[in-house]
Deep mutational scan, measured.
Amino acid sequence: MMITLRKLPLAVAVAAGVMSAQAMAVDFHGYARSGIGWTGSGGEQQCFQTTGAQSKYRLGNECETYAELKLGQEVWKEGDKSFYFDTNVAYSVAQQNDWEATDPAFREANVQGKNLIEWLPGSTIWAGKRFYQRHDVHMIDFYYWDISGPGAGLENIDVGFGKLSLAATRSSEAGGSSSFASNNIYDYTNETANDVFDVRLAQMEINPGGTLELGVDYGRANLRDNYRLVDGASKDGWLFTAEHTQSVLKGFNKFVVQYATDSMTSQGKGLSQGSGVAFDNEKFAYNINNNGHMLRILDHGAISMGDNWDMMYVGMYQDINWDNDNGTKWWTVGIRPMYKWTPIMSTVMEIGYDNVESQRTGDKNNQYKITLAQQWQAGDSIWSRPAIRVFATYAKWDEKWGYDYTGNADNNANFGKAVPADFNGGSFGRGDSDEWTFGAQMEIWW
């Protein structure tokens, strides 16, 4: 008995050590931004985005507190085989008060198993909700290839000249389909599951310092038995992507060409959309029709120009041509140079221009935006974070068209359509004006 009692403290210590080691193995990653800002004409900070554009130049032009908190852990490992559990909870508030209630979004919860298939060394099996191989332009917060959501897949299969990845994910639309009631009355209240099937071939070395990635995505509306879509709904579509990445000037340049059809055009990033119906009456549900095509040509990157200068840049042309004439032509160009006074202090400027032409009206909206920021960051790279910055932003815009969301679809035949700025004596778009804002912001990723 005495021997047992003497061994007990040692056993407890060993158990505590094991539990401590396991606790220390938890990975904590994430992203956050928050700050305070004012508008020159009075009131809180207002942000500037061109009507019809899918993004905006973000430096000194973000008006919310946003965070993603990721917890993950390698829960099992034997040799080169392992299982990893990953989670991500995100939230966004308007940064107007101390207490701002919000419903967090559970954006990731997945398990990734590496090297589980003997004859596919280096590959990963995964299932669950996941940010899946996302491609974006940081300076405009624009995701041009992103099929994230609940799904499953097999990735990084070594095929000799590259890595092959296969995945299936889902994005549902509210009110996407109906069941038959009586007297030809349909009640569009059932969600429609939109499935996306993704095939990618990446890391193909085609020139010194250059790699090529090719991808095909097929999206479709997956209806339940005895349900139907509204007439004209976009049932399926394709997205084709080619991306060349070149190492240059201690950074990279990415050149991207994408072509999409029908349900893959509205978001243009790989998620299927077009079966959703915002109104019970299918007579007024025309606005979900996105049959047509999209072409996107994009070049972006980040480079170092000597010891003291870094720069991000982007140039993009996007043409969404829809059968219902509600598409757009959008082109944007911008730069973000950074001058480093010390390894932790810099001055950053961002200059961006957007131009969006309405397919329906032929009119154009444009905006110039310039931001000057003094910044303190954890390192001497344009990617170094955390960063604390004080900024001043000036924007000038001239908008000739907007979307008509007055009333509702039952009493407005133009609901959701592009109209000229002065349509029917109204005021659509943001008109011709300018404004400036100033404030302070922190940004961090880890």
Rank of each mutant, 00 (worst) to 15 (best):
M2R: 12
I3V: 10
T4A: 14
R6P: 03
K7E: 00
V12F: 11
V12G: 04
V12L: 03
A13S: 08
V14L: 07
V14A: 08
A15P: 13
A15S: 07
A16P: 13
A16G: 10
A16T: 02
G17V: 05
G17C: 07
S20P: 03
S20A: 05
A21V: 05
A21P: 02
Q22E: 05
A23P: 05
A25T: 01
V26D: 05
D27A: 07
F28V: 10
F28L: 04
H29D: 11
H29Q: 10
H29Y: 03
G30V: 05
G30C: 03
Y31H: 06
R33G: 02
G35C: 03
G37D: 01
W38S: 14
W38C: 07
T39S: 03
T39R: 10
G40C: 05
S41G: 06
S41N: 01
S41I: 04
E44V: 04
Q45K: 14
Q46E: 03
Q49H: 02
Q49K: 12
T50N: 13
A53D: 09
S55C: 02
S55T: 15
R58H: 06
L59I: 12
E62K: 09
L69F: 12
G72D: 10
G72C: 08
Q73H: 09
Q73R: 06
K77E: 09
D80Y: 05
K81N: 09
F83Y: 12
F85I: 02
V89M: 06
A90V: 08
V93G: 12
A94T: 05
Q95L: 05
Q95R: 01
N97Y: 02
N97H: 11
N97K: 11
W99L: 12
W99R: 04
A101T: 10
T102S: 12
P104T: 15
A105S: 11
R107S: 12
E108V: 11
A109T: 08
N110T: 13
N110Y: 05
N115K: 13
N115T: 13
I117F: 08
W119C: 13
W119L: 15
W119R: 13
G122V: 13
S123Y: 11
T124S: 15
T124I: 04
I125F: 13
W126C: 12
W126R: 09
A127S: 10
A127T: 04
A127V: 06
G128D: 00
F131L: 09
F131V: 11
F131C: 11
Y132S: 13
D136G: 14
V137L: 08
I140N: 11
I140F: 13
I140S: 14
F142S: 15
F142C: 07
Y143C: 14
W145R: 15
G149D: 01
G149V: 09
G149C: 14
G151S: 12
G151D: 00
G151C: 13
L154Q: 14
N156T: 15
D158Y: 15
D158N: 03
V159G: 15
G160V: 14
G160C: 15
F161L: 12
L164I: 15
L164F: 15
A167E: 13
A168S: 12
R170H: 04
A174T: 12
G176D: 00
G176S: 00
S177F: 00
A181G: 14
S182N: 00
I185N: 05
D187A: 11
T189P: 15
T192I: 04
D195A: 05
V196A: 11
V196I: 08
V199E: 09
V199M: 03
V199G: 12
M204I: 11
E205V: 10
E205G: 07
I206L: 15
N207H: 13
P208T: 12
G209C: 07
T211S: 07
L212S: 02
L214Q: 01
G215V: 10
G215D: 00
V216F: 14
V216G: 09
D217A: 04
Y218N: 02
Y218C: 01
R220H: 02
R220S: 07
R220P: 03
A221S: 10
R224H: 03
R224C: 00
D225Y: 10
N226S: 07
N226T: 15
Y227C: 03
R228S: 10
R228H: 04
V230F: 07
D231A: 15
G232S: 05
A233T: 02
G237C: 11
G237V: 09
W238L: 05
L239F: 08
F240C: 12
F240S: 01
A242T: 02
E243K: 04
H244Y: 05
Q246H: 07
S247R: 11
V248G: 13
V248L: 07
V248A: 14
K250N: 13
F252I: 01
F252C: 04
F252Y: 03
F255I: 10
V256F: 12
Q258K: 06
T261I: 02
D262A: 04
S263L: 00
Q267L: 05
Q267K: 11
K269E: 05
K269I: 04
G270E: 03
G274A: 06
S275F: 05
G276D: 03
V277G: 14
F279Y: 03
F279V: 14
D280V: 02
N281K: 01
K283N: 10
A285G: 15
A285D: 09
Y286H: 11
N287K: 10
N287Y: 08
N289Y: 04
N289T: 07
N289D: 05
N291H: 05
G292S: 00
H293P: 03
H293L: 04
M294V: 02
L295Q: 01
R296P: 00
I297N: 00
L298F: 01
D299N: 03
D299Y: 06
H300L: 14
H300Q: 07
H300Y: 03
G301C: 06
A302V: 02
I303N: 00
I303S: 06
G306R: 02
G306D: 00
N308K: 02
M312K: 05
G315A: 04
G315C: 04
G315V: 08
Q318H: 01
Q318K: 04
Q318L: 00
D319N: 04
N321T: 06
W322C: 04
D323N: 01
D323G: 08
N324I: 04
D325G: 10
N326S: 04
N326D: 09
K329N: 02
W330S: 08
W331C: 03
W331L: 04
T332A: 01
V333L: 12
V333I: 03
I335N: 00
R336L: 06
R336H: 00
P337S: 04
P337L: 00
P337A: 08
M338L: 07
Y339F: 05
Y339D: 07
Y339H: 02
Y339S: 09
K340E: 00
W341R: 01
T342M: 00
P343Q: 02
S346R: 05
V348M: 02
V348G: 11
M349V: 13
M349I: 08
G352C: 08
D354Y: 13
N355Y: 13
V356F: 11
Q359L: 05
Q359K: 13
R360H: 01
T361A: 11
D363Y: 11
N365H: 14
N365Y: 07
N366I: 06
Y368H: 10
Q375K: 13
Q375R: 04
Q375L: 15
Q375H: 11
W376R: 01
W376S: 15
W376L: 09
G379S: 09
S381G: 12
I382F: 08
I382L: 14
I382S: 12
W383R: 06
W383L: 13
R385C: 01
P386S: 03
A387V: 04
I388N: 01
F391I: 02
A392E: 11
T393I: 00
Y394S: 09
A395S: 06
K396M: 01
W397S: 15
W397L: 07
W397R: 09
D398H: 10
W401C: 05
G402D: 00
Y403C: 05
D404E: 06
Y405N: 07
G407C: 06
D410E: 14
D410G: 15
D410A: 14
N411S: 04
N411D: 07
N412T: 08
A413V: 06
A413E: 12
N414H: 10
N414T: 10
N414I: 14
F415I: 07
G416V: 13
A418V: 12
A418T: 07
V419G: 15
A421V: 01
D422V: 12
N424I: 12
N424D: 12
G425V: 15
G425C: 13
F428V: 12
G429D: 08
R430C: 05
G431C: 12
D434A: 10
E435A: 14
F438I: 13
G439C: 14
G439V: 13
